[in-house]
């Protein structure tokens, strides 16, 4: 048995966090799970067996047990051979930059060991997450550690974060060139800052978000109506739709629908679990 759950976020952290999530198996399992880019950043803690990752450039790479990752621009596959025990935070674009001021282009398609990024913080705070007795306690620890992390973050909405959030909420359909007209910054400055804070250009980010949304429409459906996905995804023509799928997944949309090995094929449902968040306790 395997469960994947998403949990809602405290209101005051909604600017930074998309959701908390957990992924567990009851026992050891040998499994390869494919994932498309999801337009989010993340902080991930692994309390299960070590696992590995591969994509179009890495054949096989061990994943650090706790890591931060920037935007993915290629599909990747996680290889499990043991007990799955993962908990983490899916972050909105620009959130990691607010926390660590790392140029986010350096984390595009990369996972960086969290203990190297924040050794002091990790040495004091990781144990309760990794050693918790059950999922509920682990989640409580995750929420507490995340609140503490963001205590020091600059909470003012930057122009960049605002623009990236708009692209995210519009599911990548934002006309970036038109949007640039409303921004009190030169195109070059905006693009430079966007690259620094989000990790890719605004147009690339919109492309990632749109592809990710299309994948979510196709999730778990080998016979997905691709014309419907194309239209809902905001593509104007088939050639761009196919070009994007080949760019991100290495396959045509039809082939991707028929052959992808996403999580949706391995869990009964993606559960959104309402959990009382002890925000002020």
């Amino acid at each position: 048995m395997m469960s994947y759950r998403k949990y809602p976020v405290q209101k005051e952290l909604e600017t930074f966090i998309e959701c908390y999530f957990s992924w567990e198996s009851d026992g050891p399992i040998k499994l390869d799970i494919e994932s498309p880019p999801n337009a989010c950043e993340a902080i991930v803690y692994n309390y299960g067996s070590p696992y590995r990752i591969s994509n179009q450039k890495y054949d096989d790479l061990e994943v650090p047990s706790c890591f931060i990752n920037g935007q993915s621009i290629q599909n990747y596959t996680l290889h499990f051979d043991g007990k799955i025990g993962i908990i983490g935070v899916a972050l909105k674009p620009g959130a990691l930059y607010k926390l660590f001021e790392i140029p986010m282009f350096s984390l595009t398609d990369e996972r960086l060991d969290f203990t190297e990024v924040s050794p002091d913080f990790c040495s004091k705070r990781l144990a309760p997450i990794l050693n918790a007795k059950n999922l509920e306690a682990r989640l409580d620890s995750l929420i507490a550690i995340t609140e503490d992390l963001f205590t020091t973050a600059n909470k003012d909405d930057s122009i960049i974060q605002e623009a990236a959030s708009k692209i995210f909420s519009d599911k990548g359909k934002t006309n970036v060139t038109e949007h640039l007209c409303d921004i009190p910054m030169s195109r070059r400055n905006f693009e430079r800052k966007f690259l620094e804070e989000v990790g890719v250009s605004p147009k690339m980010y919109a492309k990632i978000r749109r592809f990710s949304f299309c994948c979510s429409l196709m999730a778990g459906d080998r016979e997905a109506d691709l014309m419907d996905v194309l239209h809902q995804g905001g593509y104007y023509d088939q050639s761009h739709f196919i070009k994007d799928f080949k760019y991100f997944s290495g396959r045509t949309p039809r082939k991707y629908a028929k052959t992808n090995n996403e999580l949706a094929y391995h869990v009964d449902r993606m559960a959104i679990v309402e959990k009382r968040l002890h925000l002020n306790s």
Binding site: K57, I73, F105, T108, D109, R188, G199, S201, K203
Partner: peptide, 20 residues
Amino acid sequence: LDNTINAVIKENDSIRCEVT
């Protein structure tokens, strides 16, 4: 003449910059 850096990706022993 100008360019937009779309993505910067490490590939084995090199860095691939996708630019317009």
